[in-house]
Design a protein around this nucleic acid. Structure first.
Lengths: 342, 342
DNA sequence: TTGAAAGCGGTACCAT
DNA sequence: ATGGTACCGCTTTCAA
């Protein structure tokens, strides 16, 4: 109720309770045994003064905060939002505090501040060339869709194959592909290394397309491959190009839901029936995949679950447990209404 | 280049440069004049050691940090994501760092921790009964769609009227309404106060519906009013009820885009043509409003802009400027393809 | 123009 | 079971 403005310190509490600062610290952190009576006096003093620890001071002095930071690019991208939501739920369950920072190229000072306050970090789509990549990070780091000490990967290749298998089984032989490679400036560098986490998502999906085609004995037509940047707009452009070909594909495998929706709408706007005249398969299964008519057939990535696992790993790491590199998360083909026989 | 693990402190730099720690501090912060020669020696020492300031220590010692917290419920709700994105852009421009925390009903400790570190907070859809509402907040607080010292409001009433006007002008006389009131447990309490920020969004939209009807000389049919909770599912349920009425409405005004999309799909699934047999108007203009076919006619709230203004106000507040309560943000009717003459 | 000393608010370590 | 003390890394205040 009272709005004490001048900061109350641990010493104030100690004085009020008639004990030493150390005892107060111990009560707060449960570091050592404290006689119940003393403990209660301290608790009362805390309540009466409205004392709250200063996390800065605690960290500076070597203490630990139960905080996990999430570093992500733009948050209004559904991909990130889903992962963060999953992480938040796990964090709450495990009694960690989750804070999210959106990284901009310039800010580094407060970024490193959050780093120092945190026991671990979850990096969402980090890129090696980001300035903060080399900056100081918390003791433990897990990443999603990008490199780190503990990268979480998805079976993008397998997912792409299942999407292609679905279309091939339906009887499609002219299948176009829209990649997300336009959004991957790292392409050059990646090829120099073959550490598992360097296989980025966009590449793996393309590989699934190529190899599925080959296995089915179908040719890889350069005209049938377009590149987008995961945005709806780029999907629209790519689809327009593909569907206006002299011999257009009867099916499109699009490596992101937003782009797939763009393709779907483009097809409809071109007067083509989906799935009657064109079938479309997406990738991700973002919430928006159900927001279209027809509903989008797509490959689900367990984004919420990945967020949860990321936090669980961080928690394990902090408790000293060895954590083996987790197996790639499986994907699942979700068949809705945007696919049919040619 | 070198990956020094043991932390390099300001003292290390001072020793190496043969000056006092104070001088190093002054060079770094430009606090006082330093003789160019000395300055250069310090700079060299910093470069050689790879020294980086410890923001924790700096803050503790009295420095100011430029951090703003955003407190929001679930982040994967597009509404919040948009506001946060707007805030992030403004923050970057004004050289603040934004951290986002998702509040869960229980946790309060984490919350107060960030509060201490921030110069200001942006509350998204806060509710009075949340436990943390009475907890300590940063010096300055701005809110969006909820109460605070500096609430940002939208002209929900006007927006609702413009939506209704659109339908009425088109010639509709049987207009159904889906509210968001089911998601507002505060309803009781609100009526006891009449401070401007207590008029919550869902109520104002309903008022716009009611009064527009009255002005047009049309009756308010209880059957034509259903309540949802802003989720797609609730929109589907409500629409099903409305469209199965013996004499169903020819148009639906839905007070949220997610619900509106649910209604749209329900109509389509019921075999009704949109907008041929049913017209639908939403509210919010979330990104998903363009992700349907037909595109959703809706009332735009300037969410990105509101996020930006929120941060601007916080910045002004911090610099000691008096900030008058901002005028309600205007809405704008975005006409797409989901509405037509009856 | 530069330096020395005293904290900021905690925690770790060694005593008692 | 509790207390004293020395810092964590930096800035502020006061002196030189």
């Amino acid at each position: 109720m009272l709005d004490e403005r001048s900061t109350i310190t641990l010493n104030d509490v100690a004085r009020r309770a008639g004990v030493s600062p150390m005892t107060v610290s111990n009560v707060i952190n449960g570091t050592r045994n404290v006689r119940p009576a003393t403990r209660q006096r301290v608790l009362d003093a805390i309540a009466q003064t409205g004392y709250r620890v200063n996390p800065l001071a605690r960290s500076l002095a070597g203490g630990h905060n139960r905080m996990i930071s999430v570093f992500t690019p733009k948050l209004n991208r559904p991909y990130a939002a889903e992962v963060v939501q999953g992480a938040a739920e796990a964090a709450e369950r495990l009694n960690y505090d989750l804070v999210v920072m959106m990284l901009s190229p310039n800010s580094t000072s407060d970024f490193s501040m959050m780093s120092r306050l945190s026991v671990g970090a979850l990096l969402i789509q980090p890129s090696r060339q980001a300035p903060w990549f080399s900056a100081d990070l918390p003791p433990h780091v897990v990443s999603v869709d990008g490199p780190s000490a503990h990268p979480l990967t998805v079976d993008n290749y397998g997912g792409a194959c299942s999407a292609m298998q679905h279309l091939l089984t339906l009887g499609h032989t002219r299948i176009g592909f829209i990649s997300g490679l336009e959004a991957e400036p790292d392409i050059q560098n990646v090829s120099t290394s073959n550490a598992p986490y360097e296989r980025n998502d966009a590449h793996e999906r393309f590989r699934g397309y190529r190899e599925s085609l080959a296995r089915a004995g179908l040719p890889l037509l350069p005209d049938y491959v377009q590149h987008g940047d995961f945005t709806k707009g780029s999907g629209e452009r790519a689809a327009k190009t593909l569907l206006r070909l002299p011999v257009p594909p009867t099916a499109l495998f699009v490596s992101g839901d937003a782009m797939a929706l763009g393709a779907l709408h483009t097809a409809q706007d071109l007067g083509l029936k989906v799935p009657g005249e064109v079938s479309i398969v997406g990738f991700d299964d973002l919430p928006m995949a159900t927001a279209s008519r027809p509903g989008l057939t797509t490959v689900r990535q367990p984004l919420l679950h990945m967020g949860e696992v990321a936090v669980q790993i961080l928690a394990a790491l902090e408790s000293g447990t060895e954590v083996p590199p987790p197996a790639p998360f499986p994907t699942e083909l979700i068949v809705r209404e945007s696919t049919a026989r040619p």
